[in-house]
C-alpha cells in the first residue's frame, strides 16, 4: 500500500518529531551532565548559578520556555548586534527542549552519582587509580544503573514536550495534524491519528527501555534476591 497525500505528510511529520526528540535528547544529556557537575561542584561560583538556573527552568511552564527562547533569542541578538537575526524554529525548539530535559535529568544524574557508595571511590583511590580512571571505570557504570529508570521517564516527557514546538512553526506531528484537519474539516480523525502515533512511539520506546534495562541489570542479582526470599 502506497502512502499518498495526507498520510504521507503525517509520516514525514512523525519523522520530524523523532528527529526533534533525538537531537534534544543528545544535546540535553550533555547539558545534564554539565549541570549535574555544576551543582555538585564545591566552588560556590559554579554551584549557585547552576542550581538557580535549573530550579527556575523547572518552575516555568514548558510552553513559556519554548516561546521565551524563540522570541527572546531574536531580541537578545538584536540588542547585542543591532541586527535582526532570526533563529530557525527547529534550533530554538531543540535549545528549549534540551534545556527543559537537562534541568530535570541533571537531578536524576546527581542522585545516581550520589547513590554510588563513597567506599567505591576510596577503594579505587587505594588501588592507585587516577580520579578520572576511577570515575569512568568504577563510578559511572554503577551510576548508570541508578540513573536509567529516571532518564527513561524524562525521555518520555521530552517526547511529549516536542508537541509544543508546533506552536513556533516547526511542522512536527501535531502541526501537520492541525494543517490537515484544517483542510479536510476532519479534526477528530487527524488529531486522533496524531495521538495514536505519539502513543505508538511511546509504547515502542517503553519496550526498548525494557530491553536496555535488562542489559544493564546485574547478572545473577535478581536470581540471588529470589533465592533469599
Amino acid at each position: 500500500m502506497g502512502l499518498t497525500g495526507y498520510s504521507l505528510s503525517l509520516v514525514q511529520a512523525s519523522w520530524m518529531t523523532i528527529q526533534l526528540a533525538c537531537t534534544s535528547l543528545i544535546v540535553g544529556l550533555v547539558l545534564a551532565v554539565v549541570f549535574a557537575t555544576g551543582e555538585m561542584s564545591r566552588r560556590v561560583a559554579f554551584k549557585w548559578p547552576t542550581t538557580a538556573f535549573v530550579t527556575v527552568v523547572r518552575g516555568l511552564p514548558e510552553l513559556l520556555v519554548v516561546l521565551f527562547i524563540y522570541f527572546g533569542s531574536t531580541q537578545v541578538l538584536f540588542l547585542i548586534t543591532g541586527e535582526f537575526i532570526e533563529i530557525s524554529p527547529f534550533i530554538s525548539g531543540v535549545i528549549a527542549l534540551s534545556l527543559i530535559f537537562s534541568s530535570y535529568a541533571s537531578q536524576t544524574i546527581r542522585g545516581a552519582l550520589k547513590a554510588v557508595n563513597r567506599g567505591q571511590r576510596e577503594a579505587a583511590a587505594a588501588l592507585g587509580m587516577s580520579r578520572a580512571h576511577a570515575f569512568f571505570k568504577i563510578i559511572l557504570p554503577q551510576a548508570v544503573r541508578h540513573a536509567l529508570p529516571g532518564l527513561t521517564n524524562q525521555w518520555l516527557v521530552l517526547l511529549k514536550d516536542t508537541a509544543l514546538v508546533s506552536l513556533i512553526g516547526v511542522t512536527d506531528l501535531l502541526k501537520q495534524a492541525q494543517l490537515t484537519s484544517a483542510s479536510t474539516h476532519e479534526a477528530f480523525t487527524w488529531y486522533a491519528t496524531a495521538a495514536a502515533i505519539y502513543l505508538v512511539i511511546t509504547l515502542i520506546t517503553q519496550y526498548l527501555v525494557k530491553i536496555i534495562d535488562n542489559k544493564f541489570a546485574i547478572k545473577g542479582m535478581s536470581e540471588l534476591k529470589g533465592a533469599k526470599a
Binding site: K160, D161, T162, A163, L164, S166, L167, L174, A177, Q178, S181, H185, E186, A187, F188, T189, Y191, A192, A194, A195, Y198, L199, T202, L203
Partner: peptide, 23 residues
C-alpha cells in the same frame, strides 16, 4: 491511563476542543 499518559497534553486539548465538531 494508557491514552492520557502516552500522548502530549497539547494533543489532548486540541482533540477535545476541535475533535467533536467533526460529528
Amino acid at each position: 491511563i494508557i491514552l492520557f499518559t502516552g500522548t502530549p497534553l497539547l494533543v489532548q486539548i486540541f482533540l477535545i476542543y476541535y475533535g467533536p465538531g467533526q460529528f
